[in-house]
Design a protein around this nucleic acid. Structure first.
Length: 336
RNA sequence: GGGGCGGUAGCUCAGUUUGGUAGAGCGCGGGACUCCAAAUCCCGUGGUCGGGGGUUCAAAUCCUCCUCGCCCCGCCA
């Protein structure tokens, strides 16, 4: 293995087939980091349970769909460790131990938690502890680098504080993970809000060309541009935002033509759909191949889990030693 | 363990007092209008009324048992 810059842990909750927002917000960067860093990419199925606990029955398929997409966009199991969080039970042990040193007051500031309360919903233990589990995810691999967007910085700061507190109390076990800050293009959905599965405004990588075309035609546009020849405002148009991502060479001209009323929205959308399908086609082809080999996907996850677990087990040995915990012969497993 | 409140459309809820054809808003689908989309207007889709049993000509509504959820109190660790 060549010398790498450091070790990365990143993950996504398995929400099924991934969409353009996931692709631009995380996966594209994951792919590009594979050669420079030692990468651990996690399917955070326990995190998904914080909202899907009532009916987890779809999780299994969602995990398969997500990983199939990950592989289709170029995550390479020979370069990166691709695994499912719950396949590495050591995460839960570290989470438990960390939960002892995390004041509840830190967690009550979490915006997600506060929103939950605001909506009058009954919060549960797991939701409150979400940031602790995130910290465990990162620290258990002794990752020193975490790729994040600006909005995710506070979450990483929590992990750093937890690591500092642990290291001060018990000894220096964890590197304090650094943010690998990067600018992600804003990916709007069909209604102009941020693309998200929960808004139902998303375009999936697995969508067939006709579906992509249809969804693009349903995109929100500048409401001032009522007629084809009316001047539009590309800066507020989600279709233009996507042109900038997927039609880099023509985007500027399209923006100008829109602004002077030379280009109508129908034509503009048709051109975008074409570019989008051009970009998605190779992904779709690879996806079709992976779909025919589900057992290979399972095998990749099994190998990934074994590699991940190897590191996690090592970390937990250090953690138990640092905390001077009772340490029986854990290797002795019950007779089958 | 005790008590209070609640479960009605995909979502938020009204309707229960006084039994009489199950509603509204939002969402969703279609249409009109628009180069699309949005907005607006029109039309439509919407339900084991948590479950069983009972009273009654008739029960979302009254009685009863059960179940689930939230809150408060008590007890134990």
């Amino acid at each position: 293995m060549p010398q790498r810059k450091g070790r990365i842990l990143s993950g996504l909750r398995p929400t099924g087939k991934i969409h353009l927002g996931n692709l631009e917000g995380a996966l594209r960067q994951w792919v590009s980091l594979q050669d420079e860093y030692e990468c651990f990419y996690e399917v955070a199925d326990w995190h998904a349970l914080t909202t899907a606990w009532e009916d987890p029955s779809a999780l299994e398929q969602d995990i398969r769909d997500a990983v199939t997409d990950w592989l289709s966009v170029g995550l390479d199991p020979d370069k990166s460790v691709i695994f499912v969080q719950s396949s590495v039970p050591e995460h839960s042990e570290l989470h438990l131990l960390l939960s002892m040193i995390v004041p509840v007051s830190w967690l009550e500031l979490n915006p997600t938690y506060k929103d939950w309360l605001q909506e009058g919903k009954a919060p549960h233990y797991g939701l409150l502890g979400y940031p602790v589990l995130q910290a465990a995810d990162i620290l258990i691999y002794r990752a020193d680098t975490v790729p994040v967007g600006k909005d995710q910085l506070p979450h990483l700061e929590m992990t750093r504080e937890i690591a500092r507190r642990f290291n001060r109390l018990y000894g220096n076990v964890f590197p304090e993970p650094q943010a690998l800050l990067s600018e992600f293009p804003y990916v709007p959905g069909m209604d102009g809000r941020k693309m998200s599965k929960s808004y139902h405004n998303h375009i999936q990588l697995a969508d067939p060309p006709q579906t992509v075309q249809q969804k693009v035609s349903q995109f929100f546009t500048d409401p001032h541009k009522l007629r084809r020849t009316d001047p539009g405002r590309p800066e507020i148009c989600p279709v233009f935002a996507l042109h900038k991502i997927y039609n880099g060479t023509e985007a500027q001209g399209i923006g100008e033509d829109c602004r002077i009323g030379k280009l109508g929205c129908v034509a503009c959308k048709e051109r975008l759909a074409g570019k989008l399908n051009e970009a998605l086609e190779p992904i779709r082809e690879r996806r079709a191949r992976w779909e025919q080999r589900p057992s290979e996907v399972d095998e990749i996850l099994a190998v990934g889990a074994a590699k991940a677990r190897q590191e996690a087990v090592k970390t937990m040995e250090q953690v138990r030693a640092a905390m001077k915990l009772w340490s029986p012969a854990l290797e002795r497993t019950p007779e089958a």
